[in-house]
């Protein structure tokens, strides 16, 4: 894998050296982050449409918070504190499965239950992180919470690549089924769809995607990248095709611009913040377009 990453890095650096793209991409760490952006941008944009349709925006926020706890556990058990993936994946997956199990058992509405779990995960994460903060450089915590392209290495890229491939391989063939299951579970069941199993699959996909993106976007902000591009796309589209396509475009553009802009303009902001601010500007632009164009006019109440 290292050879492939090196090839991609050298390709991007070559483009930068030839003046085809901005010179900041000639730095290896920027090239790394750019490759990661090209992995996660389309994927987060595509999966984000499903998150919006299934009204699970706050679920990924809860997982992001759980990732903080995962990091703290990693520090406690002696994992490399710059990349405690084993702890993050394990804790977040258990957390997600327990949340979904509870949702199925209690039949409580998603927003109520996710709100409860979100608070719990934030409380546990904050408590454990403060507890272990004496053991680590506190800048590591900034990295986990808000993302940092400076620390992205080959391991992070491998985690992202494998996660992206798994997510795409599972989500694409199941996209229609997941969609139908969220629109009408009873109809989906008659069509031979295992609605509960698909729910668990989707929850797991969001979980591994969220954890894999922590390094780039940050645990606190990864939920926003699942949500904002899809919400912006929803502002402008009336069909699934445009909804997914524009969500992917907005998400990828946000990632690329969010990595490039702070370098280009010497802005002292973390990559996660820049990515989300870019996505937010796109969202505002789509809101203005929606309000301005008569074709989007609809009932006011």
């Amino acid at each position: 894998m290292a050879a492939i990453y090196e090839f991609l890095r050298q390709f991007i650096i070559g483009l930068a050296n030839d003046g085809i793209i901005h010179y900041t991409f000639s730095y290896a760490f920027v090239a790394n982050a750019f490759v990661c952006a090209l992995f996660i941008g389309p994927l987060l944009g595509g999966i984000g449409t499903m998150v919006v349709i299934k009204r699970m925006a706050f679920f990924s926020q809860a997982i992001g918070n759980a990732a903080l706890t995962g990091v703290a556990i990693g520090v406690v058990i002696g994992e490399d504190y710059t990349a405690p993936y084993a702890s993050m994946f394990s804790f977040c997956i258990l957390f997600a499965l327990f949340l979904n199990f509870t949702k199925n058992r209690t039949k409580m509405s998603s927003d109520t239950l996710i709100g409860v779990f979100l608070s719990i995960s934030l409380a546990i994460g904050a408590t454990t992180l403060l507890w272990v903060s004496a053991r680590v450089n506190t800048h590591i915590l900034d990295t986990v919470m808000f993302g940092s392209i400076l620390t992205v290495n080959d391991t992070d890229m491998s985690v992202l690549l494998v996660t992206s491939l798994i997510t795409a391989a599972v989500a694409l063939p199941l996209y229609n089924r997941m969609l139908l299951a969220s629109l009408n579970p009873s109809l989906a069941h008659v069509r031979g769809i295992n609605v509960h199993l698909l729910e668990y699959v989707f929850v797991l996909l969001i979980t591994i995607l969220t954890v894999a993106c922590v390094k780039i976007v940050g645990a606190v902000l990864v939920e926003a990248l699942l949500l904002i591009p899809a919400a912006a796309s929803r502002n402008l589209n009336r069909g699934i095709r445009g909804f997914v396509a524009w969500s992917v475009i907005f998400s990828t553009a946000s990632c690329v611009i969010g990595i490039w802009a702070p370098m280009r303009f010497d802005l002292p902001i973390p990559s996660g913040g820049a990515i989300i601010l870019t996505a937010a500007m796109i969202f505002l632009a789509t809101m203005i377009i929606r309000m301005a164009l008569p074709r989007y006019r609809e009932a006011s109440v």
Binding site: T49, I53, L172, P173, Y175, N176, R177, L179, L180, L183, L187, R191, S233, R234, N237, R238, G239, I240, R241, G242, F243, V244, A245
Partner: peptide
């Protein structure tokens, strides 16, 4: 307000290929 057309809905019930294609 979901961006789902009639043809998208019918498509998602009867085919495996992602309906956005």
């Amino acid at each position: 307000t979901l961006p789902v057309r009639v043809i998208d809905f019918i498509g998602m019930t009867c085919q495996r290929r992602p309906v956005f294609t």
